[in-house]
């Protein structure tokens, strides 16, 4: 995936001013920056939802996991996870058969028939992630996927996301305002400036991923976090 000099404005408001990034297949790229720096606009561009006014975009099909999970309240966890397949033309039974093992893998056994309102925040995110994975697109765009979760749920959810991506590698664009989260999960961290967004720094996270993912207190993580925060100031 290659983006070069992408710029976009909404009316008078310049959201992006010349953003470039590259992601190799299977790479996790985190995009961090203050709120309103055009992070979500960048995801819209990659997903093909908006055509930028300037710049060059070369991206395979990308599927969006929006900020709030956007699970459909009238569908069960299983049917929400299988929504992408239904939209793709699969029958209800086929979609369920495909979604079932993935929900199990994400630790949601026994909750297949539960509606979103009765699921915890962390569970809802996992269902939304299952839906995103089952869309079968090579690129996943995750927009602040853990923004609404409390600290403990957040760290658990980060751990299973890392594990799930280990098993099913995809190219991931992860938008977050949390620098630590970016360093824990990504191979590359891109720091954007306040609006209009431009790239302040591109950091390579050359830290190994342990069995339980990276640890926030690891000196390498701490150093990169400081480096990213430094770039933002």
């Amino acid at each position: 995936m290659i983006l070069e000099g992408v710029a976009h404005a909404y009316g008078e408001v310049q959201a992006l001013a010349g953003v470039g990034l590259r992601a190799a297949p299977g790479e996790v790229v985190a995009i961090v920056g203050p709120s309103g720096c055009g992070k979500s606009t960048l995801l819209d561009v990659v997903c093909g939802l908006i055509t930028p006014q300037a710049g060059h975009v070369e991206a395979p099909r990308a599927v969006l996991m929006p900020q709030r999970d956007q699970l459909l309240p009238w569908l069960t966890a299983l049917d929400n996870a299988g929504l992408a397949l239904r939209v793709g033309g699969a029958s209800k039974a086929e979609a369920r058969a495909a979604a079932h093992p993935l929900l199990e893998e994400l630790g949601l056994s026994g909750f297949e028939r539960t509606r979103p309102a009765e699921l915890s925040g962390g569970m809802r995110q996992r269902v939304a992630f299952a839906r995103t994975l089952l869309a079968g697109a090579p690129v996943l765009c995750l927009d602040e996927p853990f923004g609404a979760l409390d600290a403990i749920t957040r760290s658990d959810t980060q751990a299973w996301l890392a594990a799930a991506l280990e098993r099913r590698p995809r190219t991931v664009l992860l938008v977050t305002h949390d620098v630590e989260e970016a360093v824990l999960l990504a191979d590359t961290v891109i720091v954007l400036s306040p609006r209009p967004g431009r790239v302040l720094a591109t950091l390579t996270v050359a830290l190994p991923r342990g069995a339980g993912g990276r640890v926030a207190t690891d000196p390498g993580v701490v150093a990169l976090r400081a480096q990213a925060l430094g770039a933002m100031r």
């Binding site: 819209d44 997903c47 093909g48 939802l49 990308a62 599927v63 969006l64 996991m65 929006p66 900020q67 709030r68 956007q70 929504l83 992408a84 939209v87 793709g88 869309a135 697109a137 765009c141």
Partner: peptide
């Protein structure tokens, strides 16, 4: 956002 999601799913 729901409309965006469905659009990226190809609806």
């Amino acid at each position: 956002d729901r409309l965006k999601l469905l659009t990226t799913l190809g609806a």
